[in-house]
Design a protein around this nucleic acid. Structure first.
Length: 621
DNA sequence: CATGCACAGCTTTTT
DNA sequence: GCTGTGCATG
């Protein structure tokens, strides 16, 4: 097979070792994606059917790219039958196939927030929604359902009833949060072994990317799945584990040898991305961490322009430095998409934006408030979600009076009361309440009009596609008109963009139903649609930068308190900050710039001391 | 029901 | 120090 010539000995070994558990410890820029794609291409070449392979990645973007790359190597297989997807997408597919009520709504962070606030109100508690949700999320990641949740301290005692109420509301709404998607899949497999068997038999070969960032449910998912055929290939890098705050457990990769028998371990240590100047510095920083699997990256790209450190008087000077350098280098040879500015917290982007705008440098912020997180998009999506799942009260309450149609807070309260009394959904209560005299005539008329409007859309849904339906929706609800009257051009543009994304969905997916569209869109984020060829400087957090590479990388705000962040107090947390720093540094191909400011106004504090990670490079820059 | 003001909250977040 | 949220007022 010709393609094997394009691999180095270790990569080739990883591709050819198809039977039995395999752990590939792949350093930054060592051709990890190449190994996975070639491995799948090789399996297909060996006559393995596409439906017998499951590849799991962490982003849709990675999944899409992988699929494309496999096709360029080998395009004689059925794209439909090969599953390369995120954990969540795979689980949604499984749940949609086996759940009694498959038209569930996926609740994002925003929806979760509304729901937990309701719960806090009902139980008369004043905890931080964020803290509550984080605790519930941690529980779900560890497969602890509300019923099984046993408090061990005062805080958790307060959480218990909240978790129970929150979950019962989710169930009533037929809504699943992101954690439910994973937890319910594994629970389904535990409760109905014949369903698990179905998938065990189907997926003879499992590949998991970014294994260092899997949490307990994801770990279980993979472990249960491979029990029959035992062909699991996990690829990851313990030095790039940066999501422990989301439940990622580095032990999954560190204990791989104990979890599976006859494990083969292959290290990929040749870095094809960065120059020696960059890599030696990164190696130096990460060597300060203990408890590593241990590997040292090397590169053939000896020398290279030195890593440059810049000290600014304040954050504005720092931003000016970045702008100046970008202009200087881009003027000579490089288009702007070759540049990235990486920071620890999103709040740092503002100063940079100002500087870029002043210099007329086009830039693009990745992450932050996502496109699908925008109010106008979420509103439209809420309408669509109700059409699929009328039990979804969160979405219903979101748009019942958007645009304003005379259904106020008291009215909604009365409808909610009726729904609770009769034990029916909020949507059913809308119909029910019209036959009573609970509401004043004006409100009843407004409800009637709203219900008729929704009924119209529900009927339309059976005959029209998603695009036509949505077009009519923004029109008939008066949503578009309102934005036009308020001259909200940005929002109108966003809606136009949303309509384009529907067109793209209809063009590229076989299942063009609204159900499929919603399931798909809930699992997509900005980075998945990111056009990395547009001539713009990329701005993003260090976290968002994982898996990406740029010729020129600027890491800004290398100060104690920012990187490592002040909230990372424990030593293990400091080590994760160091890994974050390592991830940032290893994104650079040609040249790396490190900077900090002597004085920085962020929130109300001032940071002053250079980051310890800079000091750890000492003697090298 | 819309607007304004006060006040909380502020790390990262592939899904 | 800034921004989004939530309640009170008109």
């Amino acid at each position: 097979m010709d393609i094997l010539k394009e691999l180095n000995p270790q990569q080739k070994e990883a591709v050819l070792h198809t039977e039995g558990p395999l752990l590939v410890l792949a350093g930054a820029g060592s051709g990890k994606t190449r190994v996975i794609t070639y491995r799948i291409a090789y399996l297909l070449h060996q006559g393995i059917l596409p439906e017998n392979i499951l590849g799991v990645t962490f982003t849709n973007k990675a999944a899409d790219e992988m699929k494309k790359r496999i096709e360029t190597i080998n395009n004689s297989f059925s794209r439909q039958r090969l599953w390369i997807s995120t954990f969540h997408s795979a689980c949604v597919r499984i749940l949609r196939a086996h759940l009694k009520n498959p038209n569930f709504t996926i609740y994002d962070a925003d929806d979760q927030n509304s729901l937990i606030k309701e719960c806090l109100k009902e139980l008369n508690l004043t905890l931080q929604p964020k803290a509550v949700l984080a605790t519930i999320s941690r529980a779900k990641e560890n497969l602890i359902t509300a019923g099984k949740y046993t408090p061990t301290n005062f805080f958790e005692q307060k959480i218990k009833p909240l978790y129970e109420l929150y979950q019962s509301k989710l169930d009533e709404n037929n809504g699943l949060d992101f954690d439910d998607i994973l937890m319910k899949t594994v629970l389904l497999w535990q409760q109905e072994p014949q369903i698990l068997e179905l998938y065990q038999n189907r997926f003879k070969y499992l590949l998991v990317d970014e294994y260092q960032d899997t949490n307990y449910v994801q770990y279980l998912f993979t472990k249960m799945l491979v029990q029959r055929h035992n062909n699991i290939c996990c690829v990851g890098d313990d030095d790039q584990s940066i999501y422990s705050f989301r439940g990622a457990d580095i032990r999954n990769i560190l204990n791989f040898e104990k979890d599976y028998k006859n494990v083969k371990i292959i290290r990929l240590e040749e870095n094809y991305r960065s120059t020696e100047a960059i890599l030696s510095l990164a190696n130096r920083v990460i060597s300060h961490n203990i408890g590593r699997k241990g590997k040292t990256l090397w590169t053939r790209k000896t020398g290279g322009p030195p890593v440059i450190t810049y000290v600014g008087a304040d954050e504005h000077q720092e931003a000016a430095f970045v702008t100046r350098k970008v202009l200087e280098i881009s003027g000579q040879e490089m288009t702007l998409n070759n540049f990235a500015v990486l920071y620890r917290v999103n709040a740092q982007s503002r100063v940079l934006e100002e500087a870029f705008r002043k210099a007329h440098l086009p830039y693009l912020i990745i992450g932050g408030v996502s496109f699908y997180g925008r109010k106008e998009i979420k509103d439209i999506l809420a309408y669509l979600k109700i059409l699929v799942n009328s039990q979804d009260a969160v979405s219903l309450k979101r748009i019942i009076n958007v645009p304003a149609r005379g259904i106020g807070k008291t009215t909604i309260q009365k409808i909610e009361n009726l729904a609770r009394e009769k034990g029916i959904s909020l949507y059913s209560a809308l119909q029910e309440i019209q036959t009573t005299e609970i509401l004043p005539p004006k409100a009843t008329a407004a409800i009637k009009k709203f219900v008729e409007l929704m009924a119209h859309f529900i009927k339309l849904k059976t005959t029209k596609g998603v695009l036509e339906l949505t077009n009519e929706l923004i029109d008939k609800t008066g949503y578009k008109q309102e934005l036009e009257e308020l001259a909200e051009h940005d929002r109108l543009d966003n809606i136009k963009e949303f309509l384009i994304s529907i067109e793209e969905f209809e063009a590229s997916n076989e299942d063009k139903t609204l159900e499929a569209f919603l399931a798909n869109i809930s699992l997509y984020t900005d980075i998945d649609n990111w056009d990395d060829t547009a001539p713009k400087v990329n701005l993003m957090t260090l976290h968002s930068a994982k898996g990406l590479e740029f010729n020129y990388v600027f890491m800004v705000g290398l100060e104690e308190g920012l990187l490592p962040h002040m909230n990372a107090r424990e030593e293990i947390e400091k080590e994760e900050e160091r890994r974050l720093c390592y991830v940032g540094m290893t994104r650079a191909k040609k040249q790396l710039f490190l900077s900090y400011a002597i004085k920085r106004r962020l929130y109300s504090g001032t940071f002053a001391r250079p980051s310890r990670f800079l000091l750890e490079c000492k003697g090298r820059i």
